[in-house]
């Protein structure tokens, strides 16, 4: 298995935000997690990426137990993620914002910086090249030298993708990548996600835009009140009784 969770559970006070979820992510595919608001999707992401410690259960990535690793170590292993809103450093250029994304693959320390060593110079170039490469990949070369404050919402989403890609990930977790952008732009982002999968990067996303998910995803998991109620291909999910009930009986699809 590529990445899987076993019995993953997170309890906040009396509330079980994620309850005993078993889920496996398929390599090189586009995996999606859907569910009504408050179903525990973001918490599930936070558990995998090391932001929260699970109350019980395990996260296993390529045979290695990463449950208790801090998030920066998890990133080093090749697991990247984005947030619903990315706080870019507005006074810097887009390129400057993305350069730091490759920092984890470099080794130069404070002394290198003070002495301006060859290693530092080489690694600075390496980071810059990487940033240029991923900005090209996400189609943002034209705004690379613009200030981050001056780019559109959709471009900001793409910068978030670029930042995640700059870490050289094997899998990226995208938290509502298309929230707050219009349908045309959503289409463009979907194409970008397919491009990532084609490049061999496994994608896992949380999304509310159902039409997009049904077209895009290879595999879907449905969460409701922190529990997995269904898992399968888009076709299977569409016809699943429990899913229909959850969406009709509970909160509406947002």
């Amino acid at each position: 298995m590529f990445l899987e969770t076993k019995n993953l559970t997170k309890q906040f006070g009396g509330l079980r935000a994620v309850n005993s979820v078993d889920f496996s992510i398929e390599e090189g595919k586009i995996n999606a997690i859907i569910g009504p608001n408050g179903a525990g999707k973001s918490t599930f992401f936070n558990l995998i990426s090391g932001f929260h410690r699970p109350t019980s259960g395990q996260v296993i990535f390529k045979g290695k137990d990463i449950t208790t690793l801090p998030s920066n170590k998890i990133a080093e292993l090749g697991v990247a993620r984005t947030f619903q809103t990315t706080n870019l450093f507005e006074q810097s250029t887009v390129l400057d914002n993305v350069i730091v994304g490759h920092r984890l693959r470099t080794k130069s320390n404070l002394l290198d910086a003070i002495l301006r060593t060859k290693r530092l110079k080489a690694e600075e170039k390496q980071c810059k090249d990487k940033a240029i490469e991923v900005l090209d990949f996400v189609g943002l070369t034209h705004v690379a030298h613009k200030q981050a404050a001056g780019i559109s919402q959709e471009e900001k989403k793409r910068v978030a993708f670029a930042l995640a890609l700059a870490t050289d990930p094997e899998i990226v977790f995208l938290d509502e990548p298309a929230a707050g952008v219009n349908p045309d732009e959503t289409e463009g982002l979907a194409v970008l996600m397919q491009k990532m999968a084609e490049k061999g990067i496994t994608v896992c996303l949380i999304e509310h835009k159902m039409s997009m998910i049904m077209k895009l995803a290879d595999k879907i998991m449905v969460l409701n009140y922190g529990e997995k109620i269904a898992e399968g291909t888009p076709e299977q999910i569409k016809n699943n009784e429990a899913v229909i009930k959850a969406y009709l009986g509970g909160s509406a699809i947002a």
Binding site: S49, F51, P70, S71, N72, A75, E76, A80, R81, F83, T86, N87, L88, F89, S92, D96, I99, V100, G101, R103, L104, R105, T106, S108, N109, L110, D112, A113, R116, L120, E123, E124, C127, L163, A164, A166, T167
Partner: peptide
């Protein structure tokens, strides 16, 4: 230097900095 960028990333958002492996 890269270090300076790293610090700015931390000031900007510690959560984000942590997820990009810092």
């Amino acid at each position: 230097s890269l270090n300076g960028r790293t610090y700015l990333a931390i000031r900007n958002s510690e959560d984000l900095a942590q997820t990009i492996g810092i």
